[in-house]
Design a protein around this nucleic acid. Structure first.
Lengths: 190, 190, 190, 190
DNA sequence: AATGAATGAGTCTTCATTCAT
DNA sequence: CATGAATGAAGACTCATTCAT
């Protein structure tokens, strides 16, 4: 008994995520968002979200939830296998990096809702970090990775692999495994 | 007899660079720039540059020129030594990464001058890449790095080392050497 | 060494005061304000004030300061004379009533400056009330006004005289004295 | 078979009146109105009224009609008794004052219906004024109120009594009689 | 030159009103 | 009839850029 929706909340967040990833949060404008939505006026957006900040935060939370859900399904029994699986997963959620860098830029002072969402994202980030640390520590205990390097650094380097441009155009999983090997074996000659 | 200069072009670019690095290009405003300049009015900036985009581009070019100059001084005879030296150098010019990520964000459509500057920055980036590739190829020829991996990827991974947060607070050079070792030997157990 | 000002801060506040008095704070818009200023764009206003709320608050404070200054010059020795003088004075600052009713409508949550100004206005209101109370109490002590009525009520009724439309078009002072007499003697036959 | 009514016209006007009295016409929004209605959507309001202005005007007319009806029942034989009764009545319809101050704020240029309603309200206001004048004139004729003051002024001062804040928390009728006495006898010592 | 001031284009947000189911 | 949804016309505010002294 009402008009047909111009776009779903889902579509809105998809579009927002795409824009934020491509151009960064600082240049994320509702005008642009509305234009990219194809149908629907700018003001319609306010039916779904109270303000720009909430959109960005909701968007980031959604990506984070998605990632955490996948991360939880990784079997942590065998550290190396776990790391390989995690890398594959992060490779698919490659934008997470960009997003995490932008969460702090959200002005949270005018919207308690946005503040809460940002807090949740931070919390989940913590969860992911903890998982990596846990696995790395176990790997060190089992002696399968170097022990002469603090695991934070190992983790940090490992996490950066995601940013490597896939110049060989390999399928995501193969690419992940390829990088994993280099990370593990090193770039020097054997 | 002209009035006392409010600020030199040099000072302006220094301040701009600092701002762009700290907060990213998208949130780089001339208002902020003027405030950080201590002396001089916002409108005075237009005596030196025609618009915001030119400032950003000039700023990035300057950083690039600086880097290229240093890179040229690296002795490329011994590939591994050359790489070590380059890493040390890049570590000092760590902001280059941030800057390079932002060049593309400059809206170049309204200012031919800015467009030209951006092109120059891109060109110099190319120069740096070529150098890295050259050294890596030589290293592969000499058999001091793995040959089963395309040198572009080796270079890409190598270049990412710069982003690793220096959690151990080591002095820049030591930190570079530390990472170099991990990159070379890998993270896996020996 | 700069362009000529489109309007002074003084002119701006004058215009704002007029608008707020005529149409109330709730319908006070910067667009309207700019239009009434004859010269100057809307955005120029922001050179002088940070936001709408500050303008309104500054405007009210100015009126209040003006009034308090006049009130302080009233000689309180003889209560009845003092009251007569005060009434004359309030008659000239007749808009004070309208303004006071609107101070509370100012949204103070986004601007500390506005909040402070509002606080100051309230404080000065207090000062004026205290003065009235003081004089009324003294008048009761000296037996020149009724003692069977709480002085707050006496003051309240007295203060309302200001709102009486001057249908006879008497000069302000005469009109004040005229009303003062009715207030004192009552409307009933002697 | 129609759906259940979301709200009656009566309920709508009740709520509108309450809002206009509490916060003034300038901050009267249909959004707020709909929220306060508990049941029914904002758009449903347009089944009953063509626009915001009509609602406000209808609301004010209703209050006016109510007041006029009560005023007509006052026995005008004895002027003083009539005045006392009128004051009691106005005290109960104390919001009338607020409403009358707001009629002029209604933008009547877009809706002929609203314009007509506003005209009616003004007309009834006239009626009430006439009644007051009539009674005052009679009172002057009978010599029960001062004759040295134009009856318009007497009426005006009388009407303002309604605004006096009831600090003593007396029941409405007692409060009316209390003020009536002061108005009649004056505030000066006997 | 340097700069205080002006300004218009652009963004966010709100709200009355209209649509279409 | 009722209403969920859409929307355009404001209004607040910011900022790059231009003016004129």
């Amino acid at each position: 008994m009402a008009r047909k929706r111009a776009f779903t909340e889902e579509e809105l967040l998809d579009t927002a995520e795409q824009l934020i990833i491509e151009q960064g949060y600082s240049s994320f404008h509702l005008k642009k968002l509305a234009e990219h939505l194809a149908s629907g006026a700018r003001s319609t957006i306010y039916q779904y979200f109270a303000n720009k900040e909430e959109i960005a935060a909701a968007c980031m939370k959604r990506a984070m939830v998605r990632t955490v859900a996948k991360a939880e399904q990784v079997d942590e029994q065998e550290p190396l296998n776990a790391l390989r699986d995690l890398l594959r997963m992060y490779m698919q959620e490659a934008d997470l990096h960009a997003i995490l860098g932008d969460v702090r830029k959200i002005d949270v002072s005018q919207s308690e809702k946005a503040a809460e969402l940002v807090r949740e994202v931070m919390g989940m980030h913590e969860t992911l970090s903890d998982q990596l640390s846990r696995i790395f520590q176990q790997a060190q205990n089992e002696g399968v990775v170097r022990r002469d390097i603090p695991f934070v650094i190992l983790a940090s380097l490992f996490f950066q692999l995601i940013n490597t441009p896939n110049v060989m155009q390999l399928p995501s999983e193969e690419w992940a495994d390829y990088l994993f090997n280099i990370w593990y074996e090193g770039s020097g000659k054997k």
